[in-house]
Simulated scan of single mutants.
Amino acid sequence: MIPARWLPAMLLALIIGGDAVLARAAGFDCRKAGTPLEKTICQDPVASALDEQLAAAYRDAGQRCPDAGLRTEQQRWLHEVRNVCRDVACLAPAYRRRIAELHTRQCRAAGCAGLAQRLIGAWRQASAVGSFEEIAFAAGNNPRQGRFDTWLHRRPEFVNGRWQLEACELRLLLPGEPDASAMRMTLRSVDADHLVVLEPDQTRPARYRRVRP
């Protein structure tokens, strides 16, 4: 049994702790929420979680593709889309659309210039999402395109597919398929050890780890 003399202190800790969680819940400091809409976001768990996801997607877009226009674009969305909402029924779909837009936002052509050669090598799935268990890119005659093979459970899955990188769009064309059926994904980042892409109809990026050059 909890001693009675501890109860006031525990109650105070719970209140303070609850305020701290609330303050961190959204993508902004809820202690500074001034408008009715901001208070609605802070008080509703769905809107609060979406606002936090939006903040993360915005930071990621800025790091992935530095663009002076991103801040202006985001401010316009806040004023013209989010701030005209009055309830969560309006907020939720608006947030989800904007999060998807930020995840799939194309970099300027220069943003992915020179990354094609970093793709060369074999990559293994390292996240809960991802269409391929293992995929290997080989160079072609053009520095921005070549061949790819995939494996499933260490056995060949697709062989002699074609890949092409245009701006930050990575296109994968399976053998024997017409060009129009190419799988299109956004190249988020690629370095010596990690490949990150956003695949079609996904809101979370797929991550791959290099297994051999």
Results as ranks from 00 to 15, higher is better:
L70P: 05
P93A: 03
W151F: 12
W123T: 10
V129T: 15
G121C: 08
Y58A: 04
L54T: 00
T72A: 11
R118F: 02
E101K: 07
C42N: 00
P93M: 08
V81N: 14
R144L: 08
Y95W: 14
A138V: 13
P156S: 02
G111K: 08
D51C: 03
Y95C: 07
L115H: 13
L115E: 11
H103Q: 15
R59L: 13
E80R: 10
F158A: 09
R97G: 03
A25M: 06
G69E: 08
C90S: 11
V46Y: 01
S131T: 05
E52W: 00
D60C: 01
L37M: 03
C85E: 03
R59K: 12
A122T: 01
G62A: 07
V88P: 11
A61L: 09
E101V: 09
L152S: 03
G161T: 02
W77G: 06
V81A: 15
L78H: 01
A68N: 12
A113S: 12
G114A: 04
Q75F: 01
G146Y: 11
R155H: 13
G161D: 05
A55G: 04
P36I: 00
P143S: 10
P66E: 14
C30V: 05
R24S: 09
C85Q: 14
R98N: 02
F158T: 11
A139T: 03
V81Q: 13
R155S: 14
Q75T: 00
F132N: 11
F148P: 00
A110G: 13
Q74C: 03
D19V: 10
H103M: 15
D44F: 14
Q74R: 02
C107N: 05
A139D: 08
S131M: 09
